[in-house]
Every structure is written in structure tokens, then in C-alpha cells.
Simulated assay, not measured.
Amino acid sequence: MSQGPISLRDKLVETGLSPEIADALDAMPQRRVQLDPRRPFREPGTARDEVIFVSSGLVSKYKTDAGGRRQIVALRFPGEGILPREGQAAYGIQAIVKSEALVGKAADFDPLIEKYPELARYFWRLIQRNESIGYEWLINCGRRDSTARVAHLLAETVTRYGIDPAKEPLANPFTQQQIADITGQTSVNVNRVFADLERQGLIKRTGREIHFMDWNEMLRVASFQPSYLD
């Protein structure tokens, strides 16, 4: 997690795109933007005629209800992105931690999709993966108890960051309120869950670092099956 910004071109090749097409996408006009976690990068209801690639940090999609209460509905880790859509988007975009993103225009992105069918298939697979993650989050908020919800989020975060929990801790990127906004709880209850996970001997916290003391039991408590992330 301490690594520098991820190369768009290298990430595309690493995840299965041909070097030729990765070069074409990397050459698309784009600007490098710093995202401040203290304020939204994009508000709900604004146009999404852009493609966003997260090169460092961690970025969220969020929605608010009529009372202004926030629910974080998706996360984008380094190497992941947000595709253009027609019209206004119902979700906002905000960094979880200080982040960097590459932002390009849909007008430059769409011709590449039309030119390279392989690129369209590549992004279609990513859409299907994000759909699977969304279903898992729905189950997490709707059916799992408070402890399992937080444990599942931690397990998913470790997996998506590519951390080996047997060798290194998770530098927790979330505030307790952000975890509450993801798992549909209050921050007070999230604090109780962390204390309970420590009492059970599943984690140990040192500052913002979370050390996993019994990873297999953590996965069992979370009902975590990583296949939905494939």
C-alpha cells in the first residue's frame, strides 16, 4: 500500500490486455488529478462523460438518502477505474484517502472501444466483476451480522490490495465512519466490532495497522469466499 502511483499501461497488460491496445489507451489524452478525501470529487447528479483510472490511494462511489445520510456503494482500488456513462450519474465520487487519478474524456475513450473489440470485451469483464462485488456487498449489508460485515470488508480490502496477511498488516485506509457508511452501521457500533475482534484474538491493532492473528478464522467469521473478485 505504500507503493507509488500505478502505471495505467502496465496494469492493463498485467490484467490481460495486449500491449498494443494498452499503449493506445495509455496514449489517450488524460490529466492527472489529486483527490482530497475531505471533499467530493464529483457530486451526485453531474454528468459522467469521462473515464477515471485510480493510480494511487482509494476512491469510493457514494449515494445519499433524502436525509443526507451517506452510503458508500463501491470502492475503486489502484489499478481500477470508473467508466463513462450517458447522462447524469446517481452516485458521487470521493476519495477515502489522499488519492491520484487519471481522468480522460469519453469523446476520446469511445472511439478506442469501437476500434478494438478486445478492449470492449476487457471492460465488459470488469463490469461483470464489479456487478459480482455489488451483489456481495448487498448480502453483506442485508444478511450478515455486524461483526461479519466488518470482517468481510477487511478481508476484501486485504485481497484487493494484494496483501499477504500472514506476512504484513493492513494499513487501515478507512475511518470508523467510512466503515459504517459501507456496512450500514453506526460508527459507535463499528468501534464495538473492532474491540470484539480483538477480544476474540482475530486482530491486533497498532495505530492504523491491523495485524491478522488468525486469518482462517477471520475468513470464517466473515463468510468470505474470494471467488467473486476473480
Rank of each mutant, 00 (worst) to 15 (best):
T186N: 04
E50P: 01
N172P: 05
I72C: 11
T157C: 06
I133W: 07
W215H: 09
V73G: 04
F109I: 04
A222D: 00
R149V: 05
E50R: 10
T15H: 12
I179D: 00
E86C: 01
H211F: 14
T147N: 06
G45T: 02
G79M: 10
D26K: 11
D145V: 06
A166P: 01
A107V: 14
I203V: 12
P173F: 09
Y62G: 00
S99R: 01
M213P: 02
V33S: 04
G67M: 11
I21Q: 00
A47G: 09
V103N: 05
I21T: 04
Q178L: 08
M213R: 15
E136M: 10
M1V: 08
V73C: 11
D49N: 15
L170Q: 01
T147C: 07
A166M: 07
I203P: 00
V59M: 01
G16I: 07
D196Q: 13
Q176H: 09
M218P: 00
T147V: 13
G104N: 05
P40F: 07
L75Q: 02
L154Q: 02
F77R: 03
G67K: 11
I82E: 02
D108R: 04
F224N: 11
L83Q: 09
V33N: 05
D49V: 09
V73E: 05
S227E: 14
V73K: 08
Q177W: 04
I210P: 12
G79W: 11
G142N: 12
V73S: 11
R9L: 10
D49A: 13
R125H: 15
P78Q: 09
A148E: 13
I139P: 01
V13Q: 12
S56F: 05
Q176T: 05
A90G: 09
L12C: 10
E118P: 07
T175V: 06
A27I: 11
S56N: 12
